[in-house]
Design a protein around this nucleic acid. Structure first.
Length: 344
DNA sequence: TCAGAGTCAATATC
DNA sequence: GATATTGACTCTGA
């Protein structure tokens, strides 16, 4: 398969005549012929058509809008459905060696995020458009049993890191600074932002680790904690920056932000697999995290219940009694105070 | 010097 | 495999 370059820019203006309808049954043994009537109300210049399990769909290029009329076949019954219009995400130039005589060289794979179904399509000669991410939202579907509501994404050869968009922090406020306002000039409802982020990540199957690393520059564990226990805005200091990044991400066009992260998710997956395949050694020694014994934990918690701020002498006595470092005991109370007494 | 805030990252849990 | 928990590190400000 040839390598396609990734160009996250405006799609070229395509003349409908440069786009062909293709029947890809040769690539898909179980391909079911698309019925024209399913798409008759749409632009007839399909870019591609393919089945996803029992579903098939067609995309029509409309320079920024994509419509995905779909037909689902379940238990012998057909249902025609139409998705909301979706925004065109990206375009790819034709590979240099693409030509009409050798279309097999220009296969592109569309796949569901579940990576259960791969759909191969060839590219017409000349300019063409592909849809990098096509999240669909059928959450309002009255038929929750429909099996076709897969977001559909494009996967070429796994993109390399330098092909991907760089982290989009888009903030002018360094980590060590913090202003008193969110991006809209008002105190931020951190709880709402956290809920929205959780909901979006779930909706688009974006792992916390990907969002945390790519958008926030933080670890998965940190993000999880922030989302589950968001501090009120007025209690935050430098931590406001992280919430600002979350808010800014939510404010971006849905297509853009989701596309970017779904791509990063795939990249993370392929890199993980590569590491696994190559059996690469760990870069640095793993730090062992202390685990309190049951009795140590019990004593520390009991003391904390009656006195969450023991004196240094008390902590030293506890450390000796439990065979722990003073710093360990001190850390325990410090962490316990902010985690167990945390407001919200 | 120390408490608190922010976070990492190991690892427990789902 | 993804998320939640948590011991400890780093930095800041009083």
């Amino acid at each position: 398969m040839i390598e396609l370059s990734y160009i996250p820019t405006q799609p070229p203006q395509l003349e409908p005549s440069t786009i062909k309808t293709e029947n890809f049954s040769s690539y898909l043994p179980d391909f079911q012929e698309i019925k024209e009537e399913a798409f008759q109300s749409y632009d007839s210049h399909y870019v591609t058509a393919f089945p996803v399990q029992n579903t098939y769909a067609s995309f029509t290029p409309d320079y920024g809008q994509i419509y995905t009329p779909e037909t689902t076949i379940q238990s012998g019954q057909e249902q025609n459905r139409t998705s909301p219009p979706l925004t065109l995400a990206a375009s790819l130039p034709p590979p240099e060696n693409a030509n009409s005589n050798n279309v097999d060289q220009t296969k592109i794979f569309l796949q569901t995020p579940q990576t259960q179904t791969y759909i191969a399509t060839s590219i017409p000669e000349g300019a063409y458009t592909v849809f990098e991410e096509i999240p669909t939202d059928f959450s309002n579907s009255s038929n929750s049993n429909s099996s076709y509501a897969y977001p559909i994404s494009l996967s070429i050869n796994p993109p390399t890191t330098d092909m991907l968009p760089q982290p989009t922090f888009q903030t002018s406020t360094p980590d060590h600074q913090h202003s008193t306002q969110s991006s809209n000039g008002l105190p931020m409802d951190t709880k709402k932002v956290a809920e929205d982020i959780l909901s979006e990540l779930k909706r688009y199957s974006i792992p916390q680790s990907v969002f945390a690393n790519k958008i926030l520059g933080r670890s998965q564990g940190t993000l999880s904690d922030l989302l589950r226990n968001p501090k009120p805005w007025d209690k935050l200091k430098a931590g406001r920056e992280t919430f600002r990044r979350m808010e800014q991400w939510l404010q971006q066009p849905e297509m853009k932000r989701v596309t970017e992260l779904q791509q990063a998710t795939r990249l993370a997956g392929s890199m993980k697999q590569q590491q696994k395949d190559l059996n690469l050694p760990r870069q640095k020694a793993k730090k062992i995290r202390r685990i309190f014994t049951d009795s140590q934990r019990r004593v520390l918690h009991n003391v904390f219940k009656t006195n969450n701020r023991p004196t240094k002498e008390h902590q030293m006595a506890l450390a000796e009694e439990l065979n722990l470092e003073l710093s360990t005991v001190s850390n325990f109370f410090m962490n316990a105070r902010r985690r167990r007494l945390s407001p919200v």
